[in-house]
């Protein structure tokens, strides 16, 4: 994890003329078109909008999980829209920390092993990996649950493990797809506390998709997407 910084104003993600369409037979289904967006380093952004508005698609494109139909997504000078699947996979391993709505922990691995997954792709030795994992678990307050399997943890705890997995490789940007969507109010609040801390204390850049206005209120800025139109 990088040392705490104040929120900087330089642009980390620069999205220009971004469009995404799907084809159903000969019919083109446009998700969104010609989106421009700048995400600044250290920003904690919430992206709201009704179901089917295209917010998750935008998040997936920023995460390098999906390709746009046209436009560019430049992250730290690299246009990920032009990368191959293989290049994107490598890029994701160092630049993206992803938090899923349903935690998506591997049930056969312990909390520590789940957190360690992204580090398997690095050149870190076993001991160093262990140190990073324990630091990440400590950050989310679950050091004492390192050897527990997901089935032995509550939903809130599982999501905190998911957050530890997202931050363990110190990524450039943390992306959350409704990270509190499957949690009760208390657990959701704890997760949001963590995200706030990651942004405020560690200067992490966070883009979070949410339906929940209360969750969005915890971000430093909120964007809305409706029928493919993004407003800030």
């Amino acid at each position: 994890m990088s040392s705490p910084t104040s929120v900087a104003t330089d642009t980390l993600v620069e999205i220009r003329g971004l469009s995404k369409s799907y084809w159903r037979g000969s019919e083109e289904i446009r998700v969104f078109a010609d989106i421009d967006l700048d995400i600044h380093r250290g920003e904690f952004l919430a992206l709201m909008g009704p179901s089917g508005s295209g917010k998750s698609t935008l998040l997936n494109i920023v995460a390098g999980l999906d390709h746009p139909t046209s436009g560019s997504v430049v992250v730290e000078g690299q246009d990920i829209a032009r990368m191959s699947s293989r290049q994107l996979a490598t890029w994701r391993s160092t630049h993206v920390g992803f938090i899923f709505q349903f935690y998506n922990l591997l049930p056969v691995l312990t909390a520590a092993q789940n957190v360690e997954l992204p580090l398997l792709l690095t050149h870190l030795g076993k001991k160093e990996r262990r140190e990073h994992v324990l630091a990440a678990l400590d950050l989310v307050g679950l050091s004492d649950r390192a050897e527990h399997f997901p089935g032995q943890l509550s939903g809130g705890q599982q999501q905190r493990v998911g957050i530890a997995r997202a931050v363990v490789s110190d990524p450039t940007i943390i992306l959350g797809d409704e990270p509190t969507g499957d949690l009760d109010a208390t657990s959701g609040s704890e997760v949001l506390d963590l995200l706030e801390r990651l942004s405020g204390e560690f200067g992490k850049t966070i883009l979070m998709v949410t339906h929940d206005p209360n969750a969005a209120a915890r971000a430093k800025a909120t964007m809305h997407m409706d029928k493919g139109v993004l407003t800030r």
Binding site: L65, R86, A89, N104, P118, L121
Partner: peptide
């Protein structure tokens, strides 16, 4: 399937 998707999300390539 979901777990494979997670592996890919964290950076495992298709080949891996």
């Amino acid at each position: 399937i979901g777990e494979i998707a997670v592996l890919k999300t964290v950076g495992f390539t298709d080949g891996a």
